[in-house]
């Protein structure tokens, strides 16, 4: 587990990473030689127009996909030759995800949704309950444990999703357009929540977004264009 002590050490190192779909004439270079280092405890916003490669990069960062070429180190381990199952285990132990569409299990209570990653970690039921209830309380959803997603507002659903992502105390939390489906008040709520997680728990956070006001919460903004990094600026976190 990473903690505040590791802050600053590189969590992710990408070297000359290519991701190419198709071949010959129809070849698409989604990532065209990307070098990127993300330090432990950082809060990074990934920006860029659609088709710029930011989603592809997000898939690689989230260990959901493998690069065509180039090296990718996660916590110092080269993931070039890992199997899909090994990637799943890395996701299980070190990563948390928050999606634009919330992606909670339907007809399933908030508590059970948050418990889900702990199930795959093999935790006993009682411990899962306790941790999940605490995570829900941390995102301000006490008393909503037994509500299903259909009974919660969009902002509440996204908070359940955040609770699910952080209940395992991950090293890295990836958020893909986490505020895309929310109004501006909810948007601010969610971003404040993410920033608090980054500050208080030292969780490295990468947010993919196309909104600059969301990106302002981050301490670093990486902008993609045509499969390459166009800008990499460290702004003062607001």
């Amino acid at each position: 587990m990473s903690g505040p002590d590791d802050r600053g050490a590189p969590l992710i190192v990408m070297r000359d990473v290519f991701k190419i779909y198709g071949s010959g004439e129809s070849e698409v270079r989604a990532l065209d030689g990307v070098d990127l280092t993300i330090a432990n405890g950082d809060f990074v916003a990934v920006m860029g127009p659609s088709g710029s490669g930011k989603s592809t990069c997000m898939n690689l960062l989230g260990c959901l996909d493998r690069p065509t070429s180039g090296s990718y180190y996660f916590r110092g381990v080269d993931l070039a030759n890992t199997t899909l199952d090994q990637l799943a285990l890395i996701r299980r132990h070190y990563l948390g995800f928050v999606f634009q569409g919330f992606n909670l299990l339907a007809r399933t209570t908030a508590l059970e949704n948050v418990e889900l990653p702990l199930v795959y970690r093999g935790l006993p039921t009682a411990e899962r309950r306790t941790l999940a209830a605490k995570a829900l309380a941390d995102v301000g959803l006490q008393g909503r444990e037994l509500h299903t997603p259909a009974e919660l507002s969009g902002g509440q659903q996204q908070r359940v999703a955040i609770a699910r992502a952080m209940v395992t105390a991950p090293s890295l939390l990836l958020a893909d357009e986490p505020t895309g489906n929310l109004d501006s008040a909810r948007k601010l709520e969610i971003m404040h929540l993410l920033r608090a997680l980054n500050r208080d728990r030292g969780i490295t956070i990468i947010v993919v977004t196309h909104e600059s006001d969301v990106a302002q919460f981050a301490s670093r903004t990486v902008t993609f264009r045509d499969g390459r990094i166009e800008k990499d600026e460290r702004g003062a976190a607001a």
Binding site: G62, L64, L84, D85, A88, L89, R91, R92, H93, L95, F97, F99, N103, L104, L105, A106, L116, P117, Y120, R121, R164
Partner: peptide
Amino acid sequence: TERTREIGIRLAIGARAHE
């Protein structure tokens, strides 16, 4: 469709395909 999404969620959370 619903189950495919559910499987996607489970996989992203760290379930292995065979699980």
